[in-house]
Design a protein around this nucleic acid. Structure first.
Lengths: 259, 259
DNA sequence: CCGAACTGGGTACACCGTACCCGATTACGC
DNA sequence: GCGTAATCGGGTACGGTGTACCCAGTTCGG
């Protein structure tokens, strides 16, 4: 039955994520550990990109046969899930202020996530269908929510705050990370890329079809991605702050409203 | 030479994107057109997901041999670029207000992009290294900039506005779209997924390790993605508006500052 | 001490992108 | 008109992928 099989797959993958797994007593001792496999996968993905990550490659890195990995992991998708949650958990939590105001907390989360994406670009290139609900992911959410605990807003709005920041970070990081990897991935340097595009774009600009793009200063595109990210992040936080201010004003002035 | 080859690839791909291509006079008439190939690719990717898109599959859809496609397209990457720019261009521009205030324009852009991502989820699942600079993409940027033309801000800030909105939309859409495709992609229904996660999450909540997540109302996660998206979008636009207000106040009150 | 349970991993299959090659078709130069 | 160069369709083949299946070797419970 398909249902049973997928259920087993799910249960298995969850056990791996949350670390519940008792060693069977019989049989030879395993020569590998989940940790080593996941670490090897991350090492390869970091160094060679997500396209360089194959089961055979991971096995080679560990000096075992390809099929041995399947004794520890149901399949490649599950390995990726484990790699993702592991990467989530690798952020050093020491710089995370504990009892700060909500804005500091959300900014800390955003910058930490941003840095994580830059360190592990493949996180945004693997498209897992459902979000990975592992211990590290839940811990990250918990920390973000801790900053919003004292605010007088609904839980829906709390989640709205967090997902807005997360969405913004992921979107910005995706384009930034892809661009940063472009030269290696395509074998075409930035210089080649732009000199190839130059004539075409110039013609397009002169055509008058794109007046507002044409009116831009030449260096309008030459802003480092990090600066662009921080600019938008502060604007988003400003917007959330404005929401709180408006809510406070409404609460003290008029009747209370809840959803 | 590698350099020459990649240069040729680039030039070829650009010619395809911008439609500059004169029919060669000799040889048999082509039985296919670029348009038909790109359209077939989009049809397949829409219907079967990005994993279902292969050169052999596209060729079969068109009733030709796999290798025939390479007479029209240098490779799969270039086909994807063409599909992306085509999808950009498929947004119906009729509902785009022409002389509206910047907020209306940016909101229109954001909602249009959001709808496009929902209609073509694969747009966010294919990770092209560099952004596709085709005619439709440039036209979209031009429209967004048209809404910001009258604002008294620098071009860098203009680009900051646009990329902030674009980044937010892409990030939100990515998670939303992945979740929406999850059931088909994994063969696991939402119900199966959550009933499998239930016990594990309950245990985690009771462990006390995630107090703030545990404190959430049960239905905190049950907000439709579209509502979450719109909430954050308005907050972001609020933040941009606050930026303009602060700038105006600074300009009228103190000395002018420019970057 | 036998058999059950487990580990390592080789082989094989279906599928992928695409390099290379060949015959058929067409238009140009003579 | 005719040879020839250019182009089109596409078959074959290669190296890669994830992984199902199977078997040999190892270890412990009964």
């Amino acid at each position: 039955m398909t249902t049973e099989k997928s259920g087993d797959y799910l249960r298995r993958s969850l056990e791996l994520l949350w670390g519940r797994r008792e060693r069977p007593t019989r049989g030879p001792k395993p020569g590998l550990t989940l940790d080593r496999i996941v670490a090897a996968g991350i090492r390869i993905a970091d160094a060679e990109g997500i396209d360089g990550l194959s089961m055979r490659r991971v096995a080679a890195e560990l000096g075992v046969g390809a099929m041995s990995l399947y004794r520890y992991v149901p399949g490649k998708a599950e390995l990726l899930e484990l790699m993702i949650d592991r990467a989530y958990g690798m952020t050093d939590g020491s710089d995370a202020p504990r009892d700060a105001d909500w804005r500091t907390v959300l900014r800390t989360v955003a910058l930490g996530t941003w840095r994580m994406y830059l360190a592990h670009p493949w996180l945004l290139q693997v498209n897992l269908a459902r979000p990975v609900l592992g211990p590290a992911a839940v811990a990250g959410l918990d920390y973000a929510l801790s900053g919003l605990a004292d605010l007088d807003i609904t839980d829906h709005e709390r989640m709205g705050f967090v997902t807005a920041v997360d969405g913004y970070v992921a979107g910005c990081a995706r384009t930034h990370v892809n661009a940063a990897q472009a030269a290696r991935q395509t074998g075409i340097s930035d210089e080649e890329f732009w000199t190839a595009h130059g004539p075409m774009l110039e013609k397009a600009m002169l055509s008058g079809a794109y007046p507002h793009v044409a009116a831009l200063a030449e260096d309008a595109f030459a802003v480092p991605g990090g600066k662009l990210f921080e600019f938008g992040l502060e604007r988003l936080l400003d917007g959330l702050e404005a929401f709180l201010a408006a809510r406070d004003a409404g609460r003290s002035g008029g009747g209370a409203k809840d959803a």
